[in-house]
Amino acid sequence: MLLTAKKINKSYQDNHVLQDANLDIKSGDSICISGENGSGKSTLLKIFCGLLRPDLGKLSILDRDPYKQPENLFIKQRIGVLMHSNMLYPQLTLKENLLFFSKLLGIINHRSRTYEVTDELNISKFLDIEIYKLSNGNRRKAGFAKSLLNDPEILITDEPEANIDSDTIEIFSNIFLQRLERSKANLFKSHNEKFYEKCSNKRMKLEHGRLLDL
């Protein structure tokens, strides 16, 4: 199992966002989480990628405890994350950003991997342009490129299709599907029906803090 979450609970003061949420992700899974606004989808994704801690519950990623060092470093090296924000340095160029993050990820051939990922997303022509000069759509692609640098075992994305055109949605979908052929897993949240229909092989809904199969 790539990820196992048992009875995950998370509250913001009196608002119980997640109540006993359970999830198992295995190789080849591409899970789309849907739910109403404010139902806790982003919170759940943030817990899985390590940006938030649950109040209660047990989480195991790649058969390791994400709250222990150095186990969490092993996990972080093998997951890819794209949240609402692209989490890139606006003053640095696309190349500088990707090289910086690939160095932190410990990628040996960081230069060739940077070119490989940008070629795949068709953004190589923007490599020497600062992120703040890019359009919202290209920034999203840049953020997605960053999440793919380490060819992650689990790719966790929060509305990856936000701000992008239909051609790019096609590119993103193909990447999602190609990953499944290589036994990788995707976990994402999306409101774009066309995107999630194509990219997911399992759909779940977050309702009253619980994850339900659809």
């Binding site: 990628c49 972080k76 924000s85 989490m87 340095y89 993050f101 932190l104």
Partner: peptide, 14 residues
């Protein structure tokens, strides 16, 4: 503002 600290926290760096 740019959530770049979160980006570093997501990296395998102590």
């Amino acid at each position: 503002k740019d959530e770049t600290l979160n980006a570093i926290l997501l990296m395998p760096v102590p």
